[in-house]
Design a protein around this nucleic acid. Structure first.
Lengths: 353, 353
DNA sequence: GCCTAGGGTGAATGCGCTTTCATGACACAC
DNA sequence: GTGTGTCATGAAAGCGCATTCACCCTAGGC
């Protein structure tokens, strides 16, 4: 554990530390014979260059970072249990990590990942930021003002959510477009009319964007255009989805006119609704169509399989790296805002397949 | 992108750099009023401490690392396609990453991940090693001699595979025990007798350990004990599994006496075999039982569902971090070698469920 | 034989921070 | 009033490396 340095290697091989450094940074600039002596000494001593020192001296690290929130995700755990196959199911973060890792590897970067420890010191971002050449942040992981500060120092790309800081690179998925297309499908291809939408809280930009897509499609079709979702769930969890479905059924029983389709701002809720409907003896899709959003793996496994909109999450990670690499190469380039396309996945719960 | 430093902050707030440093490292040692001045200056300037410099000066990084091989894994990609749900399925590496990330987060560490770029410079390990407080290596990612060298400098834990260097911490899964128990189940609970085992190459320690478990169970039951697997596959892929199954069937046709059960050193091969058997019109499990090893997600989805042995891969990652943290706290502790228990998953392909 | 290029090497400096160690300013007790 | 602690801060010395810049040596041209 002693940690030999360039000085040790230099001494042992009878050269200066400059030469040792060159052997690693620019081998061709050193005579072969000298190089071999140095490498041999390094081997014997167990020398490994300190990337910290190297980074300090050369102002570049070869590492990209990712910060994501501490969703110590009870839902996800539960989901894993549902499928009775622990850890077989990829989470959102897993997929982004995989995407970034692949892309980073292609470009010769390593990847540093850190989740904000809820209640921990706010140091997280700083810790990452001080250690990488650039990094990606999932929406709402880091206070906007911190980002503002840090982005003056190195490239940052924001993932998902709205573009909070307009001089940053930014990638989101086409929430609104996706929901619009999904809704169109229900209206046009299945001839459904009484559509209700279950959203999230107002401060969830994704949920709001999806609602907008829903409204747009209603407007297009000449259907009544709601100002607000028919219901807002606080948590967007499966349990809340069940509750929402029951509330809507009760409301319909009281007021008459059961809806022909329930659209949910995410798959979790839609799946909860599926359960609730089954309990109530309401058949899906015969009596009512159900649709979600996200395309989580579970959506394919439930019965009936859930019609949804699939997000290219892994690509989100890959594109993030591409953007970082580009900006590193050309720091003055104009900020970019990408919107990744999503695709409607038609399955049994809307009457397809 | 200017990158303000302690000097800038110190100047602007009228203190020395030492005080700026203390504000971040040990806030209580600075008078509140001074501290506020410094923080304000930092905010205005957009100062973020350089973790590189900090690491250099304090010889500690707060980062743990993971190196894994570049299996740019055609099988895995194919598997994802099979389930027609891109990137829904977790790979081995994803699961380890998830486990390590969770555990690292608990202990306040960030995680640096790097896959060895095949054909790239061998610098990978050095890059990671020079940047972390300790790291985990998947078996056969890094040449033993490199590890030997690096482990003199910082804690290293080896994951999976045999213990190549005996002064390193090491975690493996109970390959042999698992296969033994699986084999016992086939022999004892299903009364099977003619068992064949399809292994991997001799230099695959996992496959060999599994074969030993198979032998042990045969010996216990008083069945003939083979010296070698009935067949060795070069790649342990699905395609090789198909081929293996066909070879074994052909051999049986020539020599008479079709086996009652085929055991494969991993799930991939077993799943390939399932396909081959179906093509040949051999019913599973009525005519022949099939079993794999690993418990990959696909094993649950094929028909008949595959009996296998599930590895706690995610826990492997978690335990790795625990070991690193422990060793960091107590560098002189005796090297540890853990063996994680596995569990036999009985499904349709052996006649259960 | 002298001069010139150019490649190989070393000395020295600085990257941004942590960390003694020393200093100064006070508060308190004698 | 002098002495003794305490607390807040500054000065300075590295941490391990990359990188000029200057230097020397050798090979080639004349």
């Amino acid at each position: 554990m002693s940690a030999p340095t360039v000085y040790d290697v230099a001494e042992r091989s009878g050269v200066s530390i400059a030469t040792v450094s060159r052997v690693y940074r620019n081998p061709d600039s050193v005579r072969a014979q000298t190089r071999d002596r140095v490498l041999e000494a390094a081997r014997v001593l167990g020398y490994v260059p300190s990337e910290n020192a190297r980074g300090l001296a050369s102002r570049t690290t070869g590492v990209l970072g990712l910060c994501f929130p501490d969703y110590s995700d009870p839902d996800a755990e539960a989901e894993a249990d549902d499928t009775s196959d622990d850890s077989a199911v990829m989470l959102y973060s897993d997929q982004i990590i995989r995407g970034m890792e692949r892309a980073a590897r292609r470009h010769g970067y390593a990847l540093l990942i850190a989740a904000s420890l809820k209640g921990g010191p706010e140091s997280l971002v700083a810790k990452v930021a001080g250690r990488v050449d650039g990094f990606a942040v999932l929406a709402r992981t880091v206070p906007t003002e911190d980002l503002e500060v840090i982005s003056r120092r190195l490239p940052v790309v924001m993932l998902a959510g709205p573009r909070e800081i307009d001089h940053l690179d930014h990638i989101e998925v086409a929430n609104s477009d996706g929901e619009r297309e999904l809704t169109r499908h229900l209206i046009r291809d299945h001839g459904l009319r009484g559509l209700v939408f279950v959203g999230g809280e107002k401060d969830s930009p994704d949920a709001e964007a999806r609602f907008r897509g829903f409204r747009d499609a209603c407007a297009e079709a000449g259907l009544p255009v709601p100002d607000e979702p028919d219901l807002r769930a606080a948590m967007m969890t499966q349990a809340e989805g069940e509750r929402a479905a029951e509330t809507l059924l009760d409301r319909a029983d009281r007021e008459g006119g059961r809806p022909q389709a329930m659209l949910f701002a995410n798959d979790q809720m839609a799946i909860g609704a599926l359960h609730a409907l089954e309990r109530r003896g309401v058949r899906v899709p015969e009596d009512i169509a159900v649709a979600g959003f996200d395309g989580i793996p579970l959506s394919r496994m439930v019965r009936p399989a859930l019609t949804t909109v699939r997000q290219p999450i892994r690509r989100l990670g890959e594109e993030a790296v591409e953007l970082l690499v580009q900006r590193l190469a050309e720091p003055t380039r104009e900020p970019v805002s990408l919107m990744l396309p999503v695709s409607v996945t038609r399955r049994a719960s809307c009457g397809c397949g």
